[in-house]
Design a protein around this nucleic acid. Structure first.
Length: 514
RNA sequence: UGCAGGGUGGAGCAGUCUGGUAGCUCGUCAGGCUCAUAACCUGAAGGUCCUUGGUUCAAAUCCAAGCCCUGCACCCA
């Protein structure tokens, strides 16, 4: 049994969760569920990033303590996970003691090794915004924008991490591990970035400017800033569980790949003498009706509303079916409904319902024994063998959109199979040959449904549980065995009719014809 | 300007890495079925796969150049 450790990015608690956060968690969850199903010992970590200036400011604005602010927003993120049926094994918050301890340990270790040094930094500082400014913040005429107020050039002392001396090592590492970042074009982008010399990384902020952080163990007048806090969560969360680190995959958004996850993080680990993760998955972004989704534009969809209306599985299915991992996609109500109706309601849901109905009508709701295969059965079985071989390979390559297309194609083929056999006709015939054929077709329908469910389980776990219940089936712990076409449903008592995914009625009137 | 992604039947997308009948959903048209969630099944119409040039027996797919669209470049999954 292999260990499999997978993480999501930890979300910054400065705002409420939105569709993009939801996607990342679901994507990671699907991978985690697949590995569990395959028999791995999975550890799935997610969490929140709670330190930093913005949190401090937001809390102050509301007149509450930063910790209380974090408690509230973190609760929202946790609620989202529950709502989406995300099967994380742990949830880390960077304000937790277990995290702070490890961050300080690592910082101390690097400091002792001479990987961290103190230096002066000179720059333009806006007291009003409490931040250093970049040259690009200037107006074209060289003045500073009004919002910054008085800008002065100041000198500040800070601690720096010797990033640069690991640059060549990292380039070599990435060259030797060409699949470190998925998708591949992202890895190229990292190497592109590394063609320019790296600057050493400023890892501290003086306490006068930022209180809400982890104090440096070797200088309590400073707190550590952003990356040495946030990235370390992947290690700190499992510090007391030997054998879990290194992670197999860090699942993150494309925006935080370069430089944090693909440059800082490997170098930090290497410098600290810790093993590197095996890979990074950088997913794309959802737009909404063609427009980018962002906190600042307010163009944000609350995932909770969708879940309340259509169920977690509907959203999970859409996420994975519609987006090619690594690419961007557009989310529209229309597309969501089209997918939902076509794949889940009309195809899968309807297959279940007609199977249950006919079995109840013709064989008292008990799955009969299948007779010898005729041509329709042989054909469907052949498609199944092909599908069960193909789909896991697509899973391994994170080609979930294709995997689901193939899976649903098998469901479509099952619906077509039913048309060929027309059990509703056979059921009305007293002819023993027809009755035998009726048994075969009902058994085959139920079996095909059970098998499709085996491929859908990581994606729509609740619905698959309902399918299993309706089929009177307890899935095998051995997934390969669960995928074997056989007679294990024979004699099972089926539920009465069941509408798994109620069809979404279109509110729009059909367009007038020209 | 820099970096990245994309341009495929009426709409939205997949396929491009690993060249060889262009696939899916919606829509349209015709037919079938009536077990089922106005569902399902079958068939049809509809495509210069952005352009040009190259490699090849063969290019949506590889190479080169160009055109157009989008995102990022402050915060953001």
């Amino acid at each position: 049994m292999d260990n499999f450790y997978i993480t999501t990015a930890i979300d910054y608690v400065n705002g409420s969760p939105h569709l993009g956060h939801a996607y990342e968690k679901v994507l990671t969850d699907v991978i985690a569920r697949i590995r569990r199903m395959m028999g791995d010992r999975v550890h799935f970590l997610t969490g929140v990033d709670e330190h930093g200036q913005k949190v401090q400011q937001s809390a102050r604005k509301r007149g509450i303590a930063p910790q209380q602010f974090c408690d509230e927003v973190s609760a929202e993120f946790r609620a989202m996970l529950t709502k989406l049926n995300v099967s994380n094994d742990d949830f880390i918050r960077t304000t937790e003691e277990r995290h702070k301890r490890v961050v300080r340990d690592i910082l101390q270790r690097l400091f002792d090794k001479g990987e961290i040094y103190k230096a002066e930094y000179q720059g333009y500082y806006s007291t009003r915004q409490e931040q250093f400014l970049q040259e690009k913040d200037r107006n074209p005429d060289g003045t500073w924008p009004e919002i910054f107020g008085d800008v002065m050039e100041i000198t500040e002392t800070n601690y720096f991490f010797k990033l640069r001396q690991y640059q060549d090592w990292l380039v070599q590492f990435l060259t030797e591990n060409e699949n470190f970042v998925f998708p591949k074009f992202r890895q190229k982008q990292v190497l592109e970035f590394l063609k320019e010399p790296l600057n050493d990384l400023c890892i501290s902020r003086p306490k006068e400017r930022l209180e809400w952080g982890i104090p440096l163990p070797f200088d309590e007048n400073f707190v550590t800033y952003v990356w040495f806090d946030a990235l370390v969560n992947y290690v700190s969360a499992v510090a007391d569980q030997p054998g879990v680190w290194p992670a197999n995959w860090h699942v993150i958004g494309k925006d935080i790949l370069v430089p944090p996850h693909a440059v800082y993080w490997p170098i930090m680990l290497q410098a600290a003498g810790l093993p590197l993760p095996k890979g990074i998955i950088a997913h794309g972004w959802w737009s909404f009706k063609g427009a980018k989704m962002s906190k600042s534009t307010g163009n944000v969809i609350a995932p909770a509303a969708f879940v309340d209306e259509f169920g977690a599985d509907a959203l999970r299915y859409f996420f994975l079916r519609e987006m090619s991992v690594g690419q961007d996609s557009d989310f529209t109500d229309l597309q969501f409904k089209a997918r939902y109706n076509a794949d889940l309601a009309n195809n899968l849901g309807n297959l279940l319902n007609r199977t249950l109905n006919m079995s109840n009508r013709f064989t008292a709701g008990v799955v009969p024994a299948a007779g010898a295969d005729g041509e329709p059965e042989t054909e469907l079985r052949a498609l199944w063998e092909q599908t069960r071989a193909e789909v896991p390979q697509l899973w391994n390559g994170f080609q979930f959109h294709l995997a689901l297309e193939r899976t649903i194609a098998f469901v479509t083929a099952t619906n077509a199979y039913i048309e060929k056999r027309a059990p509703w006709k056979l059921g009305k015939s007293a002819n023993p040959a027809d009755q035998a054929l009726l048994g075969t077709s009902l058994a085959t329908m139920a079996e095909a449904l059970r098998l499709a469910a085996a491929l859908l389980r990581p994606f729509i776990p609740d619905s698959v549980a309902k399918i299993h219940a309706a089929l009177g089936h307890t899935p095998s712990a051995d997934w390969a065995q669960e995928c074997a076409w056989g007679g294990c449903l024979q004699g099972a008592k089926l539920a009465p009719s069941l509408v798994l995914f109620p069809r979404i009625q279109s509110e729009e009137k059909p367009p007038a014809k020209p």
